[in-house]
Design a protein around this nucleic acid. Structure first.
Lengths: 340, 340
DNA sequence: TTGTATGCGTTATCAA
DNA sequence: TTGATAACGCATACAA
């Protein structure tokens, strides 16, 4: 058994106008509730709208208004993002709330292939959005080039590595990592290592730099394991490597909570107690942090704040206001739990 | 220091036409690469397009074509979805891939407030999308009503509880739960309980029904704990309740992997070994399943298949084809790991 | 093969 | 307070 779709023909302002016995201009005024329309006319038009089931056509409206009241939210490589980045959901929500408040529709576009890249580029170029928020752009990103060439109001979440003069909002990974490591050292640990991850990204490299800053002369490259991704499995592998290289290790800074969770497993397998034998700290304050046993000491990512900040940056440009150069850096409080 | 945004004026077909010394009609033909255009003209026009930096205006195009080549993907209540539903990312990706293949742009819209509901309804009504995919609709959902009234090609992921005659793709939770429970019973467990979750949703109620089916006469309501959400913390609480009510319990079906992971923690706290003392099975085959210790036996949700299936259902309607009534039910293989 | 003209559904300008 | 009417940028039927 099958069913065929029923496509209705949509009513236009014209239909409403004839139904109400007025001109299209007056209908338009009512729809956008502008002043200068009599109570009589308004009532008749509202009734007519209801009767014919009129809904305004966005395409026509954005054609004449030269704007769409929509802002794109570009998500790159959702495989790694959705699966690894525990904060993407909150970033989305933060941005959506801020845009919603300003009566903009947030449309989230996923880029998962070259084909997607080309299509999204066309979509953005075509006037379907008035601005763009971009998360985790890569070096030399085609989308970044498109919005730049278009002069489309844009904000990045995290540094756009090669375009530091575009507005962005982020955190200071280096300073945060340094502060966290110092806090770990303050607990009296003597041999503190790091599971560094994603060193090809700014965030990964900066977290390692912060760790190095904190250790100063005590830094020992033998106590740093590098893994490719901010992932659980990578944490397991990294911790094993560290344990093998330096069995007397008594403190670990994992580049993310997911990595830290993996490290916890490796430590458990090796018979080390946390935090008695080894203190472990993570990064992100994601859902992981409260699920591990013991829960993780970590640094809090203001995820929804990042989204809201990026949205605000775009809205500022939309209003024709100037935006701060150099971007917004948000605070990252340390959250101390049981793992160190 | 601040920077002011540079908004360029966008080139139109007209600009290209004068630059190339041809008519707008010919330019349009080149842009949509139609036949009947001389090599000469084509070359000149392509050069002109490059020179003036022309990109077609989607709003104008969709106004005249009466379609946007975009399909909406509605995400309700992202709080619970993104945080709890481990599969939403794969559903998104599956749908995006299928739509991308058909050259449709997927635009993901988030609904997080009444304000969002109204705005998204306008967005959908306004012709910005040609079709809609809806995940986890609720009873009497306003968006559902809107797309229904509009006759917009739609597909649901999961049953729309009150509108079973609209196209949907899902899994058979009841049969899957029954099969999984039977498998657990086959391992020789004598006192098997369930942590049921989200009984206000179809999925939750059906999983409990499947469990009941499998137990038959052996069913004991005292061995069922009910928790509100598919969440880790709920799993911890549910397992504690079960242990208290029936300490001799030796098997547990948790309504989701997240719930199962919580149950594992509660069991560990209580000094029970898994799977030696108690066998545990979950549902979803999400990232949780491979991260717990031991990894979970569970039933696999074909998440990307659900997304792709929903996309296909929408595309069928877009092509004017008939869609199967009653929806598509996808297979859910059992994945047996170490937890039972 | 190319140009011209019309319409898509709105908003906005200007008279009335 | 209202009604014509001209854009907005494009596709397309028809004429050349």
């Amino acid at each position: 058994m099958v069913s065929v779709p029923a496509r209705r023909k949509r009513a236009t302002i014209h239909d409403v106008a004839v139904e109400a016995g007025v001109s299209r201009g007056t209908v338009s005024r009512v729809v956008n509730d502008e002043p200068y329309v009599s109570a009589n006319a308004r009532a008749a038009i509202e009734a007519a709208i209801e009767k014919v089931g009129y809904v305004p056509n966005n395409a026509a409206r954005s054609l004449v208004m030269q704007r769409s009241q929509a802002v794109g939210f570009i998500v790159h490589e959702p495989h790694s993002l959705f699966l690894e980045d525990p904060n993407i959901g909150d970033i989305l929500l933060g941005a959506n709330t801020a845009l919603s408040h300003a009566d903009y529709q947030m449309v989230c576009l996923i880029i998962d292939s070259d084909r997607d890249t080309a299509r999204v580029a066309r979509y953005l170029s075509g006037g379907f959005v008035d601005g763009v928020i971009i998360v985790s752009a890569r070096q030399n990103d085609p989308i970044t080039r498109v919005v730049e060439k278009l002069g489309l109001p844009t904000a990045f979440v995290g540094h756009p590595p090669d375009l530091r003069d575009l507005p962005f909002v982020g955190i200071d990974n280096r300073t945060s990592a340094r502060a966290l490591t110092e806090r770990l050292l303050d607990t009296g640990r003597r041999r503190v290592g790091m599971i560094a991850a994603a060193l090809d990204r700014d965030s990964g490299a900066d977290r390692l730099a912060g760790f190095t800053d904190a250790l100063g002369d005590a830094f020992d490259s033998n106590l740093v394991a590098s893994v490719p991704l901010y992932a659980y499995a990578a944490g397991v592998a990294g911790m094993r490597e560290l344990l093998q290289r330096s069995p007397e290790i008594d403190g670990v800074f994992a580049a993310s909570d997911a990595v830290a969770a993996g490290a916890l497993e490796a430590l458990r397998d090796a018979g080390r107690r946390v935090p008695e034998d080894v203190g472990v700290v993570g990064f992100d304050d994601s859902a992981w942090a409260r699920r591990t046993q013991p829960p993780l000491s970590t640094v809090h990512q203001p995820a929804s704040g990042l989204g809201a900040g990026a949205a605000e940056l775009v809205l500022q440009q939309l209003r024709g206001e100037a935006t701060p150069v150099g971007g917004l850096l948000l605070q990252t409080p340390i959250v101390w739990r049981g793992s160190a």
